[in-house]
């Protein structure tokens, strides 16, 4: 069975309109994207949608009470809230350096949560 799906690429803020053609659940054509990211996004979005999660994590004795974090890679879309739950369940001690791994294998996704800001100890 042939199916056509219209997507808006979230690979970057350009937001290209992409058309994906699927045949029996397999991607046969991707068009409308202007770069490789769009092609990858479109193929993944129709089969196994994934997102980067960005949030904050509690810090003890830091210049700010929280440190901004992100998942080092994308996680399955249906695991976003599981990832959030784990991020919200822990706190770390300052100092925190940018890029520091704060949680490994978050919510069994195989992906790490890393700090996106430096937090000095006060």
């Amino acid at each position: 069975m042939k199916e056509k799906r219209e997507l808006t690429c979230i690979g970057c803020p350009m937001g290209c309109q992409i058309t994906v053609v699927l045949k029996d659940g397999l991607v046969t054509d991707v068009s409308g994207n202007t770069c490789k990211i769009g092609d990858t996004y479109a193929r993944e979005e129709v089969t196994n949608p994934r997102r980067t999660v960005t949030s904050i994590l509690k810090v003890v004795d830091g210049e700010l009470p929280v440190v901004s974090v992100k998942t080092g890679e994308t996680v399955p879309k249906d695991r976003i809230f599981a990832v959030m739950e784990e991020i919200n369940s822990i706190s770390v001690e300052a100092p925190v350096s940018i890029g520091q791994v704060l949680i490994e294998n978050v919510a069994d996704t195989g992906v790490s949560v890393v700090a996106t800001r430096e937090i000095k100890k006060v």
Binding site: C12, T54, S68, K70, I98, T116, R117, E118
Partner: peptide, 9 residues
């Protein structure tokens, strides 16, 4: 692709 604080840093 960076977050805002990373870009600023």
């Amino acid at each position: 692709e960076l977050t805002g604080p990373e870009y600023a840093a």
